[in-house]
């Protein structure tokens, strides 16, 4: 646990029972130039996420990247495999027939897009945890809300005062 007296970079983790108070605390902290690192909630809350989470384009981009890679892989697998037997006769039908290959490319597109989306989710979750390593409280997955703020050790009392006035149930220096 960081010691505020030593003036190191530290933070305050506050627990709230009301999301409205938490939103007010985030707003007040920003006004006081104390940066909220993140907020915690037991469920997805649009307002809270807008207030406390940075933008996210990675997941969509990775899903799209996966989709493009999957599409290319689907066509590549079918066309290259078929190209290995150029003399095979398949009942008068064209050997290299794009319409049926579209179905396989469609499936590989979907497969790789879903893998890409999940990989991006895992990456984002890991980044989020790395940025708030000491933040977790079991109460946050149950019924309470939380706010993690980063500030200089010297401003810790100010941050504590801020969350106390905002109506936090409890707080601790992290």
């Amino acid at each position: 646990m960081a010691d505020p007296a030593r003036g190191r970079s530290a933070g305050v983790l506050a627990v709230f029972d009301d999301r409205r108070r938490l939103l007010n605390a985030i707003h007040t902290a920003r006004m006081a130039h104390i940066e909220p690192v993140t907020a915690f909630a037991p469920a997805y809350d649009e307002e809270l996420v807008e207030a406390a989470a940075g933008p996210s384009r990675t997941i969509g981009a990775m899903a799209l990247g996966g989709a493009i890679a999957g599409c290319i892989a689907g066509f590549a697998l079918t066309i290259w495999t078929t190209a290995q037997w150029p003399t095979l006769i398949v009942g008068g039908k064209p050997l290299l027939s794009i319409p049926p290959f579209v179905l396989i490319a469609f499936e590989t597109t979907i497969l790789m897009a879903s893998l890409g989306a999940v990989a991006a989710f895992l990456r984002r979750a890991a980044v989020s945890r790395r940025d708030s390593p000491a933040g977790h409280e079991p109460a946050f997955t149950d019924a309470h809300f939380g706010l993690l703020m980063r500030c200089d050790g010297a401003r810790i009392p100010e941050a504590i005062e801020l969350v106390r006035e905002a109506g936090a149930l409890q707080w601790r220096v992290v």
Binding site: A43, S56, T141
Partner: peptide
């Protein structure tokens, strides 16, 4: 749980990934 702690960033990522997967599925 893969280290889930319920941060706003995790929820944003979760919501986005879930929406994309729902569309894909």
């Amino acid at each position: 749980a893969l280290g889930w702690s319920g941060t706003a960033g995790e929820w944003r990522g979760f919501r986005r990934a879930y929406g994309i997967l729902a569309a894909i599925v």
